[in-house]
Design a protein around this nucleic acid. Sequence first.
DNA 1: AAGCAAGTCAACCGCGCTTCG
DNA 2: GCGAAGCGCGGTTGACTTGCT
Length: 345
Amino acid sequence: RGFISFSCCLSFSNRSTYHPSSLIYASLVNIPTTERKMGRSPCWDKMGLKKGPWTSEEDQKLLAYIDEHGYGSWRSLPEKAGLHRCGKSCRLRWTNYLRPDIKRGKFNLQEEQTIIQLHALLGNRWSAIATHLPKRTDNEIKNYWNTHLKKRLVKMGIDPVTHKPKNATPLSSLGGISKNAATLSHMAQWESARLEAEARLARESKLLHYQTKVSSSHHDHLNIISSDQQKQKQLESPTSTVSFSETKTEFVGSSSTCLNMIKEAENDWISSTIQEFEGVKEGLTGLLLGGDSIGRSFSADKNETAGESSSGGGDCNNYYEDNKSYLDSIFSFVDPSPSDSTPMF
DNA sequence: AAGCAAGTCAACCGCGCTTCG
DNA sequence: GCGAAGCGCGGTTGACTTGCT
């Protein structure tokens, strides 16, 4: 379905009820006022704006306009671009489908792992997760999570919300573990703040990029894609300390402040959490592997935890063993191991 | 082949945050 | 400080596809 939108006219032409140019379609689009809900009206409600699937003609109009003028000011864009859509719809179409830096098609294993791992840290914060999968949209990731990954975790017996085995003892009910939970929450908050700062930085960079593009006016679409991809490469990096040095001159004003924010957040993060991390990792892994290893996990002898944790979990042990690799993958993803040349945080 | 159920995903909705006058 | 406008985000919807009976 990768290029469904560009060919939607073709596909719709076989379905009279959805052919955009048909009267039937128009009647579907213009819902009588009497049937509308009270309260704030949707943007398309005004002036009989169109809603529903985009046609290739509309896509072309939007692309052409953005290519020439850049994006932004979504409210006024549709009129200027000659589209009978609301700005919101245009923005959505652009960000979720038409942007040249979008990678479409199936998610690979690494992407899947990244999504699961980030979801474990951030929850349903799709935009934050999407900043670590720069060529994927938050909408796409959200859809993929809901239709594939969530179900897969459920099958594995893992709660897709908490990312914990469903029959595990609640963390809060165990003495001493609340510290671990709090630390994890602390970690998630830092990562969350960092991701937000990065997302902001990326947005500003993109905006700047398109503003610059407007000044140089017409040029080949392929060039747009490649230059955008280059910027994206500089900005992406899941490990994210980001190769800002190469693009530094582009960031002025609030962007440099933003950069400092990221650096500060990262430094603070590293100093405040790196020492806690081993304890948390072992504590939670211990918990999930069964036994009372949590309490011991903070003890001086770390080897003791790994050795004994598998011995006393009853029926849950096999279950936990099955999921150990899953959990380890989450921990390895966030583990700021010194051996790693590009630490996550 | 037909009917139904489940799955997929583009698009919509509405809330909340940010910016601006 | 306040309200309006603009925008982004997460949740939800519904048309369409795919798979099963």
